[in-house]
Computed example of a mutant assay.
Amino acid sequence: MPDTSDAEGLTVGQASARLGVTVRALHHWDEIGLASPSMRTAAGYRLYTAGDLERLHRVVVYRELGLGLDRIRAVLDDSTADVPGALRAQRAQVAERIDRLQRLGAGLDRMIDAHENGLLLSVEQQAAIFGPGWNPDWPAQARKRYGNTAQWQQYAERSASRGPEEWRAVAEAVDGLDRALADAMDAGVTPGSPEANGLVDRHREVFASHFPLTRQMQVCLARMYEADPAFAAHYDGIRPGLAAWFRRIVDAAARAHGVDPDTATWE
């Protein structure tokens, strides 16, 4: 309870300091008739009495509990008002807000984790989804190499919303594409052919599960698949020469769309 022993005749500034509310709030409550000063000085200045301060304190208490000003007016002025009912209704709204905030906090934790670690999967889950050839150190290596890029941010945003089943679907799409590429190479599909160009487009669609891939970026990626020992080992492990063949079909498709593979950059 506020100390009202010396509260007889407080100015709005003094009342503001006593209650810890702004002068603007006191003026507003006065304007709408919720809590007004009831004394006047000889010069016409309005002052708050001890009784006024007591009402103001009750307004502050209920406002801090989240009640709107109309509901507070009813609680203070309507003798038939169901105060416990109003407080229970407010408690229910507070519980809903707490639940929303908890979900928001959990979402923020996942987004932070995704930006820092890439995959929100345990080592065991990664092995089960991506197979025995998967290296659980790869996400950390990718974060170190690409963590400051817009593409890593896009990847993290997608990763934050994925669980094991969503990642399993991504892995299955990648496996299906790898088999289709190997089968096409075995069948003698030539770079620049409609079938080869369709596979290039399919690669961009599958890769979009990580981040959007332009044709220029795809050229750079295909070049890395062939040059990087780890990527080359993956593709050539599926079919000898697959990494080089994939680069050729990507280059041919890029030329057909006005992109020079020799000058393509990551953009």
Score class of each variant (00 low, 15 high):
155 Y>G: 14
130 F>Y: 06
102 Q>N: 10
121 L>P: 01
122 S>P: 01
158 R>T: 08
161 S>H: 09
131 G>Q: 07
156 A>P: 09
131 G>W: 05
105 G>K: 02
104 L>V: 05
113 D>F: 09
159 S>K: 09
123 V>R: 12
108 L>W: 13
148 N>F: 08
155 Y>E: 14
157 E>C: 13
125 Q>C: 01
142 A>V: 06
153 Q>C: 13
128 A>C: 06
151 Q>G: 08
138 W>G: 04
162 R>N: 09
116 E>A: 15
163 G>P: 02
159 S>E: 06
132 P>L: 04
123 V>M: 02
134 W>N: 03
106 A>T: 13
158 R>V: 04
112 I>D: 15
144 K>G: 14
137 D>P: 09
147 G>L: 02
167 W>D: 02
158 R>W: 04
129 I>P: 09
130 F>T: 00
111 M>P: 00
143 R>A: 12
130 F>E: 00
125 Q>K: 01
154 Q>H: 15
134 W>G: 01
131 G>K: 09
150 A>G: 11
124 E>A: 08
117 N>D: 04
116 E>P: 01
142 A>W: 04
142 A>Y: 04
151 Q>C: 12
105 G>W: 00
119 L>R: 12
162 R>M: 14
107 G>D: 09
164 P>A: 08
129 I>Q: 02
136 P>R: 07
111 M>L: 14
124 E>I: 01
150 A>H: 07
165 E>W: 06
118 G>P: 13
152 W>A: 05
145 R>N: 10
112 I>K: 14
147 G>S: 05
117 N>P: 05
106 A>I: 06
106 A>Q: 15
159 S>M: 10
113 D>K: 09
128 A>W: 04
108 L>D: 07
162 R>A: 06
128 A>N: 10
142 A>Q: 05
139 P>C: 09
111 M>G: 05
166 E>N: 11
124 E>M: 00
149 T>I: 11
151 Q>S: 14
162 R>S: 10
139 P>D: 07
133 G>E: 05
124 E>L: 00
105 G>Y: 00
152 W>S: 12
147 G>N: 05
159 S>F: 11
147 G>Q: 05
158 R>F: 05
165 E>P: 06
149 T>D: 07
107 G>L: 07
103 R>S: 15
129 I>S: 00
127 A>P: 02
144 K>D: 12
115 H>S: 03
153 Q>D: 13
136 P>G: 09
139 P>G: 11
160 A>P: 06
145 R>F: 10
134 W>H: 11
141 Q>E: 13
155 Y>P: 10
